[in-house]
């Protein structure tokens, strides 16, 4: 039997804000599991507790209540970090190192031997398309290049789990497409990925399962298809519609006794729609409570 890649069990994280008795509940009774080789999306507005959850999973913070584990090892055990790679939000690395030296540094921290390290670094530099910049110092890297070298260092020791916190924040569209491709590549290799993002399109494109978080709580979780499929609705997306055809179709629908036109217009990402409706509901609930 093998343990799931990540198990978060009833996690609560409370920050004490000042010396006064002032608290902030960043994460509240959160539970979820990420299976081996699964791509898991965690979405939520800013401040909803995604990063905090990731930090607890990685042992950078201690849970106030509850437990988290990686492949069955408690996050507080330093050995749990052998099989996980992490790309933090807006990462900075040692500016004085070159791209290659950065990979060497993190590889050695993971206990890689010199010989493997050389081959592995070359392989990763090719993978993230930084071969030309490999021997330049990071101080001269663009935001997108930093994210890519960050991704490379996260997977230097071939972890079975990769945690990416807003990997495309501040990266231009072509750069974020490259990162998406890399995530798909990880999926091919059966590496589990947790992707925290507010870029819903991207989550939708790559994730097997998605959770929506707000104010530290999970609003909804499930397989992407189940979440966004609406059984009794059919969506037609058409291109180059000649004028008049749309009103003809609308008339046909109106004439049918059962059929109903829900909405028409330009298509929207379905996940985005779901996200907005869910978080709006959540907001209303909160508003009543307080």
């Amino acid at each position: 039997m093998s343990s799931p890649a990540v198990e978060v069990d009833n996690l609560t994280k409370i920050f004490r804000l000042s010396l006064r008795r002032d608290y902030l509940v960043a994460v509240q009774n959160l539970s979820f599991t990420v299976g081996e080789g699964e791509i898991y999306g965690l979405i939520g507005p800013n401040g909803s507790g995604k990063s905090t959850t990731m930090k607890v999973i990685l042992g950078l913070m201690k849970p106030t209540r509850g437990t988290t584990s990686i492949f069955g090892l408690d996050s507080r055990d330093v050995r749990s970090r052998h099989r996980v790679g992490f790309l933090p939000e807006n990462p900075y690395f040692y500016k004085h190192l070159s791209g290659r030296e950065t990979l060497y540094f993190y590889g050695k921290l993971c206990g890689l031997k010199k010989r493997d390290l050389k081959a592995r670094s070359a392989e990763l530099l090719a993978l993230v398309d930084l071969e030309d910049a490999a021997d330049r110092r990071l101080s001269g890297y663009s935001k997108g290049m930093l994210q890519r070298i960050g991704l490379a260092q996260a997977i230097i020791q071939r972890p079975q789990l990769v945690i990416l916190d807003e990997p495309t924040a501040g990266v231009d569209p072509s750069g974020s497409r490259k990162i998406r491709d890399l995530i798909l590549k990880l999926k091919e290799d059966r590496v589990a990925v947790i992707l925290c993002s507010h870029l819903l399109e991207q989550v939708q494109e790559v994730c097997d399962r998605v959770a929506i978080m707000q104010e530290g709580k999970m609003l909804k979780e499930g397989a992407l298809d189940e979440l966004i499929a609406v059984e009794d609705e059919v969506e037609l997306v058409m291109k180059n519609l000649p004028p008049g055809l749309q009103s003809q179709i609308e008339n046909l629908v109106r004439d049918d006794p059962d059929a109903q036109l829900v909405r028409s217009g330009h298509p929207r990402t379905t996940l985005e729609r779901l996200f907005l409706s869910e978080t709006e509901k959540g907001q209303q609930g909160e508003g009543k409570a307080s």
């Binding site: 930090k55 990685l58 042992g59 950078l60 330093v78 050995r79 970090r81 052998h82 996980v84 790679g85 992490f86 790309l87 933090p88 939000e89 807006n90 990462p91 900075y92 690395f93 040692y94 993190y106 921290l109 993971c110 206990g111 960050g150 260092q153 996260a154 020791q157």
Partner: peptide, 14 residues
């Protein structure tokens, strides 16, 4: 400050 510490301590570094 540079969050380099996150990447270091999220490796198996006590």
């Amino acid at each position: 400050e540079d969050r380099t510490l996150y990447t270091i301590l999220s490796k198996p570094v006590p």
